[in-house]
Write a protein that binds this DNA or RNA. Structure first.
Lengths: 251, 251
DNA sequence: GTATGTGAAAAAGTTCACAGCC
DNA sequence: GGCTGTGAACTTTTTCACATAC
């Protein structure tokens, strides 16, 4: 990522420092993109794809950031993590950004997905044909319900949860989506992990315990609702306070 | 690396700084619970409710934090934002924490929810009878499809999107859930806002534009998948690098 | 003139470590 | 002894502001 620097700002290595691990740490850090920035890059990508479809070829940070709901400094900083692809005085070429973000996010390869738990939600997920933002083909479905096994959902036959290891290996599943009832989630997770799945998207309201090398992201409806509830409450408080211009709060 | 700030750089207020709004800002800050902590409080609440059901009456930060998937210092800090309800040398009373967290999150009152867009996902959401973590009754459903209007889903009749203002007012909806196709989302959002809904949970892959007083949270499948994809890719990179530096890669 | 890219400052969030209380 | 509560240290993330390039 050839950000060129006039001079090498040599890190004046303190003389007593770890010799071996240091360089690698530095390289890793240089390569590292903040987690928060990764999430936003995905958003920028979607906005950019939309723009490309509309025939927009060039865009300035100000405009792109507005469309993505962030401020322009943050957008530029985020983009700077992946390289320097803009033109000063002009802006960014939409197509270039799309390509670069896709590269960074690893979207140049396909990631097979399996969905475990074909209830209401699992059904909905399986039917998101090809999963939002193509590149994530759903290639296996699992449930424990005998009545569902062998039934096609969104074009894929449901397999039994017991077969997770075999089926996931065969179909090279790299991402597992858990949409089971809470009590089943940890067990399913363990099976996925032992099947070699390294990334899990968890919709079950449970905190999954996984080994370090497995990445879990969770989507938690109850938590989201409660956060909103908190904001409703706070707003009510603020309104009350504004009213009184100050003092409050009994235990 | 030498940038330590050992001594108190006394904040000699630069004479050019805003003096007026300062006090209020300070007071607000003192009262404020970090956004990140709010999300975790909701998780603690769930874990605690489970414990209470199992008859556990007292728990130490170490154990509770393990169950919630965070470290104990963070847990204690988070709890400290809502008050001091623990006993040194002992731990926390489960019931007390449940009550206090519920109070802070505003769960002592009910929040009526409406779901807009009764497709696969909306259907699943509407059927989450009473919504995860009771206290969020679904009290209205909306769609544009004439064939759906008047049909009961999860016990509630679907209304037309045009009726959002009237129905939301009647049923005192305080949280709107958007599960429409992307192109419809902003329009629906505008309607919800004009109906006085101040909190929105958005499942549509669009960045919603709302006035400042409206709180939006989004659940974005595509983004979640892409973040996982990023981690798959990074892992692959790391494996390649480790290879280079002579490490043994596990199968 | 205009808009990027980026050090440096500020803010937010996390972890440490230990005084204080049981 | 054991565990909470919390200032202080540290880390990460965001914002500022401007040199740099077109």
């Amino acid at each position: 990522m050839g950000a060129r620097r006039g001079e090498d700002v040599e890190v004046v290595t303190a003389p007593g420092r770890l010799p071996g691990g240091d360089e690698r740490a530095v390289r890793e850090r240089a390569r590292a993109i903040p987690e928060a920035a990764v999430a936003r890059l995905a958003v920028y990508l979607r906005v950019l794809s939309g723009l490309a479809e509309q025939g927009v070829t060039t865009i300035a940070s100000e405009e792109l950031s507005a469309a993505a709901g962030v401020n322009s400094a943050k957008l530029r900083k985020d983009l700077s993590y992946i390289g320097s692809y803009g033109t000063r005085g002009v802006g960014y070429e939409v197509e270039v950004l799309v390509d670069q973000i896709e590269r960074i996010l690893g979207l140049t390869r396909k990631h097979s997905v399996c969905v475990v738990g074909i209830g209401n939600l699992g059904h909905a997920l399986a039917n998101y044909a090809g999963f939002p933002g193509r590149g994530f083909p759903v290639s296996a479905l699992f449930d424990v319900d005998e009545d569902l096994i062998g039934v096609p959902v969104g074009g894929i036959l449901v397999s039994h949860v017991e077969d997770i290891p075999r089926v996931c290996a065969e179909r090279e599943v790299s991402i597992g989506v858990i949409a089971t009832p809470p009590p089943a989630a940890q067990g399913v997770c363990d099976r996925l992990v032992s099947a070699g799945v390294q990334c899990i998207l968890n919709f079950a309201p449970v905190v999954l315990q996984v080994p370090d090398h497995v990445e879990v992201r969770k989507v938690d409806l109850a938590v989201e609702m409660q956060i909103l509830s908190f904001h409703v409450a706070r707003r009510a408080d603020e309104a009350a306070n504004a009213d009184e211009s100050g003092m409050v709060v009994p235990g």
